[in-house]
């Protein structure tokens, strides 16, 4: 950041010897944000979430117990790629939470947030894909696939099991800890096997084991 960009309303922080500038609310910044998050994005989140939730029920069984191919993941990837990380992340969170609530009668929170990680990861490079401009070429496809593989891996191999531990296994409750940990690592293994075999649509539903 150049010095002359600095404004009097900005907040300075000193973190570990580095000087950080946290911009509070400069008008310019807000105008930029508005541009990125306009009416179209609001509606995209709305209709996208509706699409995601409606497709929750549409699953193709893979033959393994509780493991399905979920077309809704493809929809999430598409929305994130077209509308960017904010839309991707929010559709992931709200869509998964609502879908769980409507179809399973309870919400498995530690799986809701990884969904956002996938959406954000794919959405971060939305400008690179230039789908709206009609230029989804070979290079864009490569970027997209790297983003989705990394995003999915981080989400389901790192974030989901981590949250499973944080949210559902408090140390005081050792009684059930062993059972659930076994379950969640098993899920992680299943998931990584799914991704290793090359499909971004894989997501198994270990979450069915406890409401």
């Amino acid at each position: 950041m150049k010095i002359r960009d600095f404004q009097s309303r900005d907040l300075w922080l000193r973190v570990a010897g580095h000087r950080l500038v946290v911009r509070k609310s400069s008008a310019e910044m807000e105008r930029k944000m508005e541009k990125r998050f306009g009416i179209k994005e609001v509606v995209a989140i709305g209709i996208g979430t509706a699409l995601f939730v409606a497709l929750t029920q549409v699953q193709i069984p893979l033959g393994l117990p509780n493991t399905y191919l979920q077309p809704r993941m493809a929809v999430l990837a598409f929305l994130a790629a077209v509308f960017g990380p904010v839309v991707g992340g929010v559709v992931g969170v709200i869509g998964h939470a609502l879908g769980d609530a409507f179809f399973y009668g309870s919400v498995w929170w530690s799986w809701v947030f990884p969904e956002a990680v996938v959406g954000i990861a794919i959405g971060l490079f939305a400008a690179k894909y230039a789908i709206k401009e009609g230029a989804f070429d070979k290079k864009a496809m490569i970027v997209f696939n790297i983003a989705q593989v990394v995003g999915n891996a981080v989400a389901w191999i790192v974030v989901a099991p981590l949250l499973d531990v944080l949210i559902y296994k408090e140390p005081a409750l050792k009684v059930i800890a062993t059972g659930r940990r076994r379950m969640s690592w098993q899920c992680a293994a299943d998931r990584s096997a799914g991704y290793a075999s090359g499909s971004r649509l894989f997501q198994n539903r270990c979450e069915v084991f406890e409401p």
Partner: peptide, 20 residues
């Protein structure tokens, strides 16, 4: 904006299901 997005989602789920 988020409030509105959620309202749209709830409003359109049945419509999207019909489309499907």
């Amino acid at each position: 904006n988020i409030g509105y997005a959620i309202a749209i989602a709830l409003r359109y789920i049945p419509d999207v299901q019909d489309d499907f």
